[in-house]
């Protein structure tokens, strides 16, 4: 599994969700947390957008292996993972600007395809 590829796909999903339905997501958390990934993949598919569907499939494949028609329930998380998720949720609630900054980074990411300048 390619971490870079996963991050790239997650970034692209973030861009499309922001542009099409004005929804901001946490790309970094999307890569790190399986439960969050499941939810975002589900939301992405609900939009019935062809490109978004493709990226959702791709992310699912990178995160969970081969694509599954019916996603299995989230595996039980360790206490550490749960704690991390809780802290993150708390951060998102109390510090919305953090999410905003990450979103800006995602928006800019596409301009780095094929060159820096």
């Amino acid at each position: 599994m390619s971490a870079t590829e996963k991050l790239s796909v997650a970034a692209l999903i973030g861009v499309i969700l922001r542009r099409r339905i004005n929804r901001t997501i946490d790309v970094k958390w999307l890569v790190e947390n399986d439960a969050y990934a499941r939810e975002i993949i589900k939301i992405s598919r609900e939009q019935k957008l062809e490109d978004l569907n493709e990226y959702a499939d791709h992310l699912e494949k990178l995160t969970f292996g081969e694509s599954k028609p019916n996603m299995a329930p989230a595996p039980a998380q360790s206490m550490e993972d749960t704690a991390k998720a809780d802290i993150h949720e708390w951060l998102k609630e109390t510090e919305p600007e953090v999410e905003e900054k990450e979103d800006d980074a995602v928006l800019d990411a596409s301009k780095y395809i094929g060159g820096l300048r």
């Binding site: 870079t4 590829e5 990411a109 780095y112």
Partner: peptide
Amino acid sequence: TGFGKVPFIP
């Protein structure tokens, strides 16, 4: 690898 397809974020 990935040049022109994925962003290479500085």
